[in-house]
Design a protein around this nucleic acid. Structure first.
Lengths: 190, 190
DNA sequence: CTCCTTTTAGACAGGTCTGTCTAGTGCCTC
DNA sequence: GAGGCACTAGACAGACCTGTCTAAAAGGAG
């Protein structure tokens, strides 16, 4: 009952995270993953019910790491406006890592088979969390229209992600942060 | 040598446009397309060299229609700032149509097999065109930093697309346009 | 009417992909 | 040392998917 995890499971998740993110959930088959993980095919089906569950675990891991990263950047900050800006700092850090290819959830959902697929469900869950987080910061900051402020911040965030991914524009996050700063300092507060 | 097109080819393109956009290039097989088009499988391979060419033709059509839509919204306008804002009006029109599911190029590229795939090539072509268009308007408007203005407009545009798609947020385009207006009226000019 | 292009229906081949199954191997614990 | 857990290697089944092929029909143009 210890928290010790089997190495096969971890190696599978590592390989899935790398390959699914870099090349797409649909493009990468389980044979590629078990080969990269150095694991027998049986181990995949022993640890996961199937590819779908592996995909779900991959997205869960991505979400958890994103949550942790934002947490790390907002921890210690008391000003909610600073927290909103720190979300962009967290993004800048993610973008700076090699192999950035946009939002894992958005990419996975783009190739999903339907609105009930694990990819679509994971996307909705992630977006729900993210929307709520930004809205809670905006509310905490005492803006007259917190939902409107949150919407603008989200729009800039998504724009930065898309622009980085589509145009390989490395400065997009900084620009978005700058624009967010403008929005946050000029929006009316209670 | 007339411009008359074979109905089979057109019906194939119609079906491909609908299905590929709604469900993804990878998810939809040629059997689905020929069935929806009411056409024999042989006709697909008679009119196209294979699925890749059909995908390329689908994306070409999307690009052409987007170009025409923006052209329609900017035609008659003389003020380049108004032209930049008209790009958002064109987007608003596209978003209002039922079944909007984000950028066809970005979605296709997300499930592409590699950087040399027809999807990735089409995306780069489209982004090149779009970047150039926005930059040319910004230059025409006489901004001190046309590239910076273009970058901000693109970021807002992409953010609006992503926000509409990911959050089913119908007001995102209007918000993005508003923010663009702010950027365009406050940015320094020569 | 005749030629040539386009289209049809469907069988078929060859590939890939997920998932199952078997038989056996370490390894840890009791 | 016995039993259960995690894992291995690989064959195999079954589904799906692209693309080919055949034999024939429709249709317009000269």
């Amino acid at each position: 009952m210890t928290t010790k995890r089997s190495p096969a499971r971890e190696r599978l998740l590592d390989a899935a995270d790398r390959l699914f993110y870099a090349e797409g959930v649909h493009t990468v088959g389980i044979d590629r993953i078990i080969e990269e993980a150095g694991v027998a095919k049986g181990s995949l089906f022993y640890n996961f019910s199937g590819k779908d569950e592996l995909v779900a675990a991959y997205l869960d891991g991505r979400g958890e790491r994103r949550r942790a990263r934002i947490e790390r950047h907002t921890a210690g900050l008391t000003d909610p406006v600073a927290k909103l800006l720190a979300v962009f700092d967290a993004l800048a850090e993610a973008v700076a890592e090699s192999g950035f290819r946009g939002c894992a959830f958005a990419n996975a959902a783009a190739e999903a088979s339907g609105p009930d697929s694990v990819e679509a469900v994971a996307l909705r869950r992630y977006r729900g969390w993210f929307d709520e987080l930004v809205l809670s910061f905006a509310t905490e900051a005492g803006y007259a229209d917190p939902a409107g402020v949150a919407e603008r911040v989200r729009l800039l965030y998504d724009g930065a992600v898309a622009n980085t991914q589509l145009d390989a524009n490395r400065g997009a996050v900084a620009v978005a942060r700058q624009m967010a700063e403008l929005v946050l300092t000029t929006a009316p507060r209670n």
